[in-house]
Computed example of a mutant assay.
Amino acid sequence: MKVLVTGGAGFIGSHIVDHLLEEGMEVVIVDNLTTGSESYLRPEASFYRLNIQDEGLMDVFREERPDAVIHQAGQSKVPASIEDPIWDAQTNILGTIRVLEGCRQYGVKKVVYASSAAVYGNPQYLPIDEEHPVQPLSPYGVSKYTPEHYLKAYDELYGIRYTVFRYANVYGVRQLPGGEAGVITILMNKLINGETFRIEGDGEQSRDFIYVEDIATANLSALKQGDGEILNIGTGKRTTLNELIGVLEECLGRKVETAYSPERPGDIKDSYFHNERVMRVLNWTPRIDLKTGLQRTYDYYRMKAEN
């Protein structure tokens, strides 16, 4: 199978590429390297430095004729979407439509799409399941949700199968601070630089933190199953910021310097997933516990700092 990965030089996409290659698949990467890195590219994969909005994307589809697309490319910063909603929509909505047009014109059979927990907005109940009302609070949430409708339409019109993943807070090796779920990376950088980590609020706000390797294996599973499904991808476990710091202190065997400041207006207090559907539909389960994931992530950033 030949798989085109948009955003394949980025945080999540590069891990997906690694797993695809380990499974013996042919891989094509499209990435404009805005947040991705050439250092994450694998020589076995074909690489096109390209924005998904560019007309040249059609040339990639014509040349490579992939069987499937794993669509990870996009704008992932909530504040940036508020500051420039037109750019956000051009990237996440129009860019996705261009990807789907490539799929339509050149016979792609399956698309796996990275959506987000941001589509749900403030939770009306917890844990959040796939039946939870969709009420995004930011342009980013809107721009991640809108392509879900296009995927359904392209399936009905042209028979292009799809699976939608709504990601919880993904963390791990290669993540850049400042993205949708960059709190752990920010914390790691503060630790390594000997700085105090500032917590906005009382630290009891909670999220569902899932390690990037588990996200990658879910994407691979969706290439052959889960057609027409919208699936929450998370651990199903609630972790407060204070608990997160406590686990990290266990890993390091030392205290993490923290300081508390007033709560930031508009922040969602609690968000974590009900993940039984994805476990059943894809026969998938998250395997990396929080302590293991934090240790791997810290070791990676410490090694980068030393080099």
Rank of each mutant, 00 (worst) to 15 (best):
F11Y: 05
I12Q: 03
G13D: 03
H15R: 14
H15A: 09
I16A: 06
V17N: 04
V17H: 06
D18W: 02
D18E: 15
D18H: 09
H19I: 01
H19C: 11
L20G: 04
L20F: 06
L21F: 02
L21A: 07
E22V: 08
E22G: 05
E23C: 13
G24Y: 07
G24N: 12
G24T: 11
E26Q: 15
E26T: 13
E26P: 03
E26S: 13
V28R: 02
V28K: 08
V28I: 13
I29Q: 10
I29W: 09
I29D: 11
V30E: 12
V30R: 09
D31E: 14
D31F: 11
N32A: 10
N32M: 08
L33V: 14
T34L: 14
T35R: 10
T35K: 07
G36F: 09
G36S: 12
G36N: 08
S37M: 11
S37A: 13
E38R: 15
E38M: 14
S39P: 00
Y40K: 13
Y40P: 00
L41H: 10
R42W: 04
P43M: 10
P43D: 15
E44N: 06
E44A: 11
E44S: 11
E44C: 05
S46D: 13
F47N: 09
F47T: 09
F47A: 05
Y48S: 08
R49D: 06
R49I: 05
R49P: 03
R49G: 06
R49N: 12
R49C: 10
L50F: 07
L50G: 05
L50R: 04
N51D: 15
N51E: 13
N51L: 00
I52S: 01
Q53I: 02
E55H: 02
E55F: 03
E55P: 00
G56R: 12
L57K: 05
M58W: 01
M58C: 00
F61C: 04
R62L: 04
E63I: 02
E63H: 06
E64I: 05
E64A: 02
E64K: 02
E64C: 06
R65W: 00
R65Q: 11
R65V: 06
R65P: 00
D67M: 01
A68Y: 03
V69C: 02
V69E: 03
V69D: 03
V69M: 03
I70V: 15
Q72W: 07
Q72Y: 07
A73M: 08
G74V: 00
G74Y: 00
Q75D: 11
S76I: 13
S76T: 14
S76N: 12
K77F: 01
K77V: 06
P79Q: 02
P79I: 01
A80K: 01
